[in-house]
Design a protein around this nucleic acid. Sequence first.
DNA 1: CGGAAGATCCACT
DNA 2: GTGGATCTTCCGA
Length: 204
Amino acid sequence: MGRFRTIPQSFYRRSAELVARELLGRYLVRDLDGSRLVLRIVETEAYLGAEDRASHAWGGRRTRRTSALFRAGGFAYVYLVYGMYHCLNAVTGNKADGGAVLIRAGEAVEGDDFMKTHRSLTREPRPGDLAGGPGKLCQALAIDGGMNGTPLFRGPLRVTTGREVADSRISIGPRVGIDYAGEAAAWPLRFCELDNEEVSRPRP
DNA sequence: CGGAAGATCCACT
DNA sequence: GTGGATCTTCCGA
């Protein structure tokens, strides 16, 4: 039995809020060209689906872009933001729920040299440089739209067990970059490991 | 069919 | 702290 044991699909078939909290401390493993890159997840955000104005599934709208979001929990939802960066989500709940967890930041555990290359960093990485934000994280692991809809419970991009982060070590705050979402903008659905340097700005 | 906006990041002042 | 990059997607006309 290896160090990184893949988490089964059933883990994701629960509420986005719960999955977001419990993804902290788990490992995101990426197989690429015979190498293995591993990030420990330190920041997530839950998106609740139809009732959540910040969610791409708001109002139940289902478009070409968001179709993966309406699958059963456990699949990746990857989309392009601002024409330049990709964001990785884990779909949660049951089919057609529209819930998801945005994986916002991680700390490198294996393969940091590859991540550094993927991020086009020349100098020595400072805290947050490698994967301290959703766009950076996807660059570090070479994740793009081609991984949209792929399973996270098997295959070249997957989530594995890891030491659980205690409640007392989790800070909770409003989500980032969703000021347009009205009331939902204030909902406490962002989860970070307390005092972790890789967490993105603004630090809660 | 046009326009606006976006779950971001970086360089610059 | 501010603005620019960059382009797909979506909605309204």
